[in-house]
Write a protein that binds this DNA or RNA. Sequence first.
DNA 1: CGATCAGTTGACAATACTCAAATACTGTGG
DNA 2: CCACAGTATTTGAGTATTGTCAACTGATCG
Lengths: 235, 235
Amino acid sequence: MVNMVVDKDSPLVEWLGATSLFAGVEGEHLWGLSGIAMVVSCKRRANIFSEGDPGNGFYLVKEGRVKVFMLSPDGKEQILHVIEPGESFGEVAVFAGQSFPAHAVALENCRLVFLPREDFVALVSGNPALALNLLAALSQRLRQFAKMIDALSLKEVPGRLAAHLLYLGEKQAAGNRLHLELSKTQLASLLGTIPETLSRILSRLQRDGFISIEGAEITVIDQQKLAELAEIGKF
Amino acid sequence: MVNMVVDKDSPLVEWLGATSLFAGVEGEHLWGLSGIAMVVSCKRRANIFSEGDPGNGFYLVKEGRVKVFMLSPDGKEQILHVIEPGESFGEVAVFAGQSFPAHAVALENCRLVFLPREDFVALVSGNPALALNLLAALSQRLRQFAKMIDALSLKEVPGRLAAHLLYLGEKQAAGNRLHLELSKTQLASLLGTIPETLSRILSRLQRDGFISIEGAEITVIDQQKLAELAEIGKF
DNA sequence: CGATCAGTTGACAATACTCAAATACTGTGG
DNA sequence: CCACAGTATTTGAGTATTGTCAACTGATCG
């Protein structure tokens, strides 16, 4: 929690009510949430928490993006999740274990909403709708993690990359065009590989007519082949 | 849900109250749970559900064990979780997505408790304590999955195996002795590798004086070295 | 008792990582 | 606004862990 500044501003309530985590939560309880919330700012590259840190609460991203990742003893990282505005992270420590199971670092200058554990648990205890939203959010994440395990174990890097490109295509819905939303180094870390390997495989996909690359902008040339690659997981 | 038989027996209430999922739930609500629960039997190797199946509820294991796993198009499997008596599986489909994200098969003849989605959600809505238990359970699983992703991505097979052996040692608390609770083929699938590789690495660990192997019974000879291997992830 | 399955071992192939170097970018301070 | 330092990206050469294929043994189960 280095380099963070507490802000005192703006009506949080509306923003909170617009997040999927708190969608449908009644006004009264929304006020309760905003009452216990603290908005903090943190700079690009700032450490938000580290694995093992006591988890006295969790965060929502208001602006910017955050990466949640595991770190190996020799410094290699595996990104578990890139958190975008409106999403939350760190809830796991609130409901089990009391310590963060991973590291979190700001990818950009961020504005975060911090919700302290005890107060938040008290609110959840009195609001089943909120609890169900949380259960849905955690279930959703579990689903994502299962897919990630599946990919890491049963697909080779080209397959994982292809799946990610298709995912970005859907998400961005801009025809054949898409942009990688991470640096290639970070993308490698998300896909469970290293920059060199990612670079080579991107070239290969271009050479073989799957895609066309201009920096971080990709044009999907053969979606069919890309989908096959993502499906079976290997060239 | 092939090969399952509904039983009409026994007071479930006590058993339910003893599971960690429903620990601390008040008697009244416990009766509600037992009212909606169905006990089913299924035989070893029976399919309980497959990926994509509609998730109309979830299960607790009363007797036997169940494996939850992902399957690649060419038939390779990655075990996500081995469910033991008292534990639950399939909750994800109840709270998000409505379909099972993985496959589940009985490892042994099993007795399962099935809880139908709609009735169960209704109960959760009226019982915050139950909701908090569920949040804890899902959070716990998220933690396990994060560790698994970490292991698959940042550790080599020897490191994953070493970590697993240490885990079994702690769990079984029988001095230096431990037994693999799965066939070596299944263990390979749990560790994200194949039987041949697992076999070779077990031999290597024995040859190098880490462990001694007699079938599925392992004696830990050098816990220190095993712990180092698990920590740094590579030989 | 035969057949299927689990486990082991060998030879080989291949994906992916390591190390190294060259080039392109980025952001910052002068 | 430019120069510089520090990153990011790409490419090459070599290595290595792990997967594939195949054969063989031993165990398990009808």
